[in-house]
């Protein structure tokens, strides 16, 4: 698997989130995803980006276009230096929320994508990576 191109964007506010959504959509269009997959990817990005803004005071999103055995994909990695998540399994459960949302962010983002990984350490931050393949 190789990374064809990558970029990074800081997300600290609701307006940054809007910009992230636009950027992710443009990448998804460029990679050739159909409308439904574009919508899934942008929605997942919005959920995870909002988590970063709400719980960690913001963070950085890395966008990567992937190429693997002739197929193309988009990987988004959300990295923050917030408080971390003490119980990741619990946080992935639908309806679990410590914020103002519905608690669908993490679990919902996982369902919308093909690959999902999370690493979190209390006191040092959280990294979530999601990938969708064409």
């Amino acid at each position: 698997m190789s990374v064809a191109r990558s970029d990074r964007v800081a997300v600290r506010s609701g307006e940054d989130l809007l910009h992230l959504r636009q950027m992710v959509r443009q990448w998804a269009v460029d990679i050739g995803f159909g409308l439904l997959d574009q919508t899934r990817i942008v929605t997942a990005a919005s959920e995870l980006g909002r988590n970063m803004v709400d719980f960690a005071g913001g963070g950085v999103v890395r966008l990567e276009e992937l190429a693997d055995l002739g197929r193309r994909g988009l990987r988004l990695t959300f990295e923050d230096h917030g408080p971390g998540i003490p119980d990741v399994e619990l946080a992935l459960r639908d309806g679990y929320s410590t914020g103002s949302g519905l608690g669908l962010g993490l679990g919902g983002a996982r369902r919308l994508m093909n690959e999902f990984s999370i690493a979190s350490k209390v006191g040092s931050g959280t990294t979530v990576a999601i990938t969708r393949w064409r």
């Binding site: 409308l35 439904l36 919508t39 899934r40 929605t43 669908l104 919902g108």
Partner: peptide, 14 residues
């Protein structure tokens, strides 16, 4: 509601 949005809302669990 757009079709892609409807499908995504269900995927999302909303």
């Amino acid at each position: 509601i757009r079709p892609a949005v409807a499908i995504t809302l269900v995927d999302l669990g909303l």
